[in-house]
Write a protein that binds this DNA or RNA. Sequence first.
RNA 1: GCCCGCUUGGUGUAGAGGUUAUCAUGCAGGAUUGUCAUUCCUGCGACCCGGGUUCAAUUCCCGGAGCGGGCGCCA
Length: 464
Amino acid sequence: MPTHYRTHTLGEIQANGADLIDSEVTVAGFMEANRGKGAICFVDLRDGTGKTQIFLKADNVGEESLDMVQRMTRESTLQFTGKVSEKRPPKLKEGETPPPPAYEVIAESVVVIAKAEAPLPLGVTDTVHVELDTRLDNRFLDLRRAHIAAMFRLRGKILQYGREALINEGFFETHTPKIVATATEGGTDLFPMQYFDTPAFLNQSPQLFKQLCMSGGLERVFEIGPAFRAEKHDTYRHLNEFISFDIECSWATDDDVMGVLERMIHHMWQSVANDEESKSYIATINEYRASKGEEPVEVIVPELPFPRVSYCDAIRIIKEKGGEIEWGDDIDAENSDLLAEDLPQFYFLPRWPMALKPFYIHHVEGEDGSTGDQLSRGFDLNFGRDELTSGGQREHRMDVLIDNLKKMDLDPEEFEFYVAGFRHGVPPHAGWGLGVERILMKLTGAKNVRETVLFPRDRKRVSP
RNA sequence: GCCCGCUUGGUGUAGAGGUUAUCAUGCAGGAUUGUCAUUCCUGCGACCCGGGUUCAAUUCCCGGAGCGGGCGCCA
């Protein structure tokens, strides 16, 4: 759609170039490069949709404008008006195949919209490596790099596909508060804040609220929203503010919501594999990876159902592989690597010991592990060594809920805020929370979760 | 919180107890009227901070700050 500043996007110039030849257009974008040659000059112009070369001649634009463009700094925003023309093909070396026809704009006038200061703190098109810290300090420039922009556009796609899958299964999107009076889950540290005259916290999880939706009879809800954790971890997979993709589902067990999750992820992957735009983003990321000598990322659509490796089986497998672990232990990173040897992609880890799961997780009496300890209806979803999701069926029986709190040495009175919502009848329900950044890391091959967040908040970074 | 490592032009790097501190990219100036990773010529620009050892420290030692990797925990 035309706007005040342009009649066509640069993507449109290339896509519809044959029909646009000789028509007057106004385009605008960032100047990626200029190549001066005496009385002529070439500008590589880039906008959010593509690139187009602008051809300037002193005869057309005047010497003053030509000189101004030749002196212009890279990444300045410029606006050109001129006629579309087919670009002359480059000189070919022997054996090279000619490129497909491309289109350029023969400029008749130029407007400098905003000149970029030089030098740039990071080169948008430079071939030199830039460290993540430098990139995040100058994220607005980093985002101008093709493979970075592709990553964020893919992020939007993934959220869209996730919504599609859930809405098709009868879920609807909702929102829960991020300012809370008390911890909703216990365990992790919270960021304190002041709420008028009352101390409050940034919420670490929508857990309680989405369960209250079940108590309220909303049956199938999902939320995509921020969660805040004040833990001082410093790893490739942790953030202090991340986006949690949560669902809660009534009249459902852990097995039921594992089905919802694997179908949603399958839909995400299949859509990326089939959608032209999504494929082009993956291709852009792979072009960059190739330039760095890295393996391309492959979108391998996972088969349904995902493998299910129960906690008990996981312990047995780890022991067989020589890992040091006992039934009842959490599975640490080293042992996760052992598991991932044979499970490099998605797999569920259901039926954890009750003692390793929160008080609100449901259990079925008589489902015991090899040591006779009670199993839970809590599960994780891993991709290789990394945990992407944890979920489970929730405890809807009031007496058992209170009993769970006591068994875990928690004071039921302190959890009154939680328990209160379940006193007046509640359907059996289950749900999960998926880390959006983590799943994106798996899709795009990012080695650090911060790559997948516009402005990540980590232990050391609150700005920009 | 624990363990390990790093810090050199705008960016990314090489390197040594005494150097004109390397290379790439960038930036500035010049040449080229169809370039396209433009090319060619000339130039510019750096040793994180504090203390110590030494004739001499950017280099070695100590401390600090910043950054990175691993772990715990988690999504």
